[in-house]
Nucleic acid binder design. Structure first.
Lengths: 135, 135
DNA sequence: CGGAATCCAGACTGATACTG
DNA sequence: CAGTATCAGTCTGGATTCCG
């Protein structure tokens, strides 16, 4: 990981800092509602590596309950981010895979992750400083 | 807004799809914890336009309670994303402004917002389809 | 005007147990 | 193995009230 690449693309400049509460902001809030929970990002991260079976996802994440994984996957499937393939074998086998749209989300997420990595130390410092001042 | 521009830059490929639960993923989860709540993004959006007073923020957002705005601002201030300036006048006057780090967050957020806008229709369709199939 | 403290209702999470 | 159902504990956001 961490190879370097040059990327060129056209982007729409409709910043948060633009008009009032326009479509863009609302759209952003919807996405954050979907991925802002405790597990969704991790599941996407696992699936980004390729199709994976239910229990394999659970093991890969570690700490997620059976129930929460089901709910998370349902949510993603509902929004067309993942595709579910069930095989009527015995025992049953179900594979989950990122849809094209799901894969397209990985890139913006990586952008955000880059920011997160770069600023984590600073945040940590700010946080300690603030907490100290508050006694 | 919505002019078109070509953007070239170097990006770090340390994708979600890389190794196991590395630093990056954890960092990303932390950020999402901070901005994934109901109001933080909107507050950042408002402050992105410039320094703003407490009540002005509240009016600009609309629907946020007094208490929630306080909590949201405290959280952002704690992490060094916003700076708070209090003037000991009567009546009191307090201004909030995005810190440099706070401003640097706007760009990745815009990236995500671009994705959100582009895919919202698709998501909407997928969602209705899924809900219909579920009866 | 800006903020803190209290209280409360609803949403979310997770452990457990059960089904196909 | 994959998924559902139930239930209890926790957390969140909001209304209200009081203080500087």
């Amino acid at each position: 990981m961490s190879t370097l690449k040059t990327e060129t693309r056209a982007v729409e400049i409709s910043s948060l800092s633009d008009g009032e509460d326009h479509s863009g902001c609302h759209a952003l809030l919807e996405v954050l509602d979907r991925i802002g929970d405790k597990w969704t990002v991790m599941v996407v991260g696992v699936l980004a590596k390729g199709p994976t079976r239910f229990n394999a996802i659970q093991r890969a994440i570690g700490g997620i309950s059976h129930r929460m994984l089901t709910r998370t996957l349902r949510g993603l499937e509902r929004d067309g981010m993942v595709e579910r393939r069930a095989f009527a074998t015995i025992p049953p086998k179900v594979e989950y895979e990122l849809s094209p749209m799901g894969r397209s989300l990985v890139s913006p997420l990586d952008t955000l992750m880059g920011w997160a990595q770069a600023h984590r130390p600073t945040i940590e410092v700010a946080r300690s400083g603030f907490d100290d001042r508050s006694d």
